[in-house]
Amino acid sequence: MSLTKEQTQHLYHKLLDMKKELSGEKKETESMTEEVGELSNGVDNHMADHGTLVTDRMTDQTVREIDRELLEEVNHALQKMKDGTYGVCEKTGQDIPYERLKAVPYARMTVEAQADMEDELETDAPSFEREFHEQVKDLSNKETVDQKSSQTYEILDREQDSK
């Protein structure tokens, strides 16, 4: 069952809103030397201050990269709307259900095809790549951000316990 005109319009506006949010003005971060220089002007700075600065910078870069990749997916979905191929699974050619597109308007595949692809990636990728993929998934999942139950936190806890 293909999408109705109303459903397509709703998803189109949702994608445009996402694009606007993702391509909106981002907070410009100071250069690393400015930030470190600011810290080194004080007396008795702790090394942890520098470590925190580096960690914050890495987190900002990761979030920007995730936003950039998501923006590419949104633009791809908008292009597919123009081409008339939006809502069709790129792997199977089946229609992607409206409920899935409502949840993930830039979805390229049905849930089943996506799960199959992720299973293939897990079996083909070396373990460190699978672990990194899961960590990035935790960072980009709004449900697991700031929760101690995510895989990223578990790995950090394990590393800290081993020291």
Rank of each mutant, 00 (worst) to 15 (best):
L78C: 02
L78D: 01
L78N: 01
Q79R: 05
Q79K: 09
K80A: 04
K80I: 00
K80D: 01
K80E: 05
K80W: 00
M81T: 02
M81L: 03
M81P: 00
K82L: 05
D83K: 01
D83W: 02
D83T: 04
G84H: 03
G84F: 03
T85N: 02
T85Y: 00
T85D: 04
T85Q: 02
Y86S: 00
Y86E: 00
G87F: 02
V88K: 01
V88R: 05
C89L: 02
C89Y: 03
E90T: 06
E90Y: 01
E90Q: 09
E90V: 06
E90S: 01
K91G: 04
K91Y: 01
T92E: 15
T92Q: 10
T92K: 09
G93Y: 02
G93S: 03
G93C: 05
G93R: 06
Q94S: 12
Q94C: 07
D95G: 12
D95Q: 15
I96W: 04
P97C: 04
P97E: 08
P97I: 09
P97Q: 05
P97L: 05
P97T: 09
P97R: 08
Y98I: 10
E99H: 06
E99F: 02
E99Y: 01
E99Q: 11
R100A: 01
L101A: 11
L101Y: 06
A103K: 15
V104R: 14
V104H: 11
V104A: 12
P105H: 01
P105Q: 01
Y106T: 05
Y106D: 06
A107R: 04
R108W: 03
R108M: 08
M109C: 10
M109F: 10
M109I: 06
T110M: 05
T110H: 05
T110L: 03
V111S: 09
E112I: 01
A113V: 06
A113R: 07
A113M: 07
Q114D: 11
Q114S: 10
Q114E: 13
Q114I: 02
D116T: 08
M117E: 13
M117C: 08
M117H: 13
M117F: 14
M117Y: 13
E118W: 07
E118A: 08
E120C: 03
L121P: 04
E122M: 08
E122P: 03
E122N: 13
T123L: 05
T123F: 05
T123E: 12
T123W: 04
T123C: 04
D124A: 12
D124V: 09
D124M: 12
A125M: 13
A125Y: 13
P126S: 10
P126T: 08
P126V: 13
P126M: 08
S127C: 06
S127A: 14
S127L: 13
S127M: 14
F128N: 15
F128C: 08
F128M: 14
E129M: 12
R130E: 11
R130P: 07
E131S: 15
E131N: 13
E131F: 13
F132R: 14
F132I: 14
F132C: 09
H133A: 15
H133N: 15
Q135H: 07
Q135G: 07
V136M: 13
K137D: 11
D138N: 14
D138W: 10
D138Y: 09
D138Q: 09
E143Q: 14
E143P: 10
E143M: 11
T144N: 02
T144V: 09
V145M: 06
D146E: 14
D146M: 14
D146Y: 12
D146F: 12
D146I: 12
